Simulated scan of single mutants.
Amino acid sequence: MQRQGGTMRKILAALVIVSAMALGGCAQQTPPSGTTITEMTHSQSKAVPNFDSSEQVEKDPARLAEFQALLEGHAGESTDDRSDGCTGGTTTDLSWVWSDRTTDTLSTYRCGQDAPDFVVELTELIASWR
C-alpha cells in the first residue's frame, strides 16, 4: 500500500514498503489519525468463466465505515497470502480516498486456507458487496 501526499509521506511509505518486502510480506498501514474514508473503488477477479471482475465505486457511509474498521482492526498485519502453488484464488484490488484527500491502494490475493486473517476478512467483505 502506498500513501500519496507530501514528500515526507512518500519517503516514509517507500521505507515501509521496502521494509515489508525485506521481511517477506506486505504490512497493513494504520489509517491517518482523524480521517475517514470518503470513497472507495474495488474489484475482484478470479479465474472462473463469467466471473464479474468489474470495478465498482462505493460511497455508502456504512460500508466505508465497515471497511475502515477492518483496516484499523488489522493495522500492521500482513496482506501477503503465502499459498504457494495455489491457483484459482481471488484477487481483490482497492483504492480509496481519505477525508484529507490523500489516497491509498491495496491488492490482495486469497487462495487456500492459509491466508492471513485480514486477507480472508477483506476478501469476504468485498465479495458481500458485489
Results as ranks from 00 to 15, higher is better:
C26G: 14
C26A: 10
C26W: 04
A27V: 15
T30F: 05
P32A: 08
G34Y: 03
T36H: 09
T36Q: 10
I37M: 11
T41W: 13
H42I: 02
H42N: 08
H42V: 04
Q44S: 15
Q44L: 12
Q44K: 07
S45A: 14
S45F: 00
S45K: 04
K46Y: 05
K46G: 06
K46W: 04
K46L: 12
V48T: 15
F51A: 02
F51C: 01
D52F: 06
D52W: 07
E55Y: 11
E58T: 05
D60L: 01
P61A: 12
P61Y: 07
R63H: 12
A65R: 13
E66A: 14
E66K: 02
E66C: 02
E66F: 00
F67L: 10
F67I: 01
A69L: 02
L70C: 03
L70A: 04
L71C: 10
E72W: 02
G73D: 09
G76A: 09
G76H: 05
E77V: 01
E77R: 14
E77W: 05
S78M: 00
S78H: 01
T79C: 09
T79D: 13
D80L: 11
D80M: 11
D81Y: 00
D81M: 00
R82T: 07
S83R: 03
S83K: 02
S83G: 15
G85I: 12
G85K: 05
T87N: 09
G88N: 07
G88L: 04
T90I: 13
T91Q: 07
T91Y: 04
L94C: 04
L94A: 04
L94Y: 01
L94F: 00
S95E: 12
S95N: 10
S95I: 08
W96G: 11
V97H: 00
V97K: 14
W98N: 11
S99P: 04
D100H: 12
R101F: 12
R101I: 08
T102F: 01
T102E: 14
T103C: 06
D104Y: 13
T105S: 11
T105M: 09
L106E: 03
L106T: 07
S107C: 07
S107R: 09
T108D: 00
R110H: 06
C111P: 13
C111G: 14
Q113E: 12
Q113H: 09
D114P: 00
A115F: 00
A115Q: 01
D117A: 15
D117P: 08
V119M: 02
V119S: 05
V120I: 14
V120E: 09
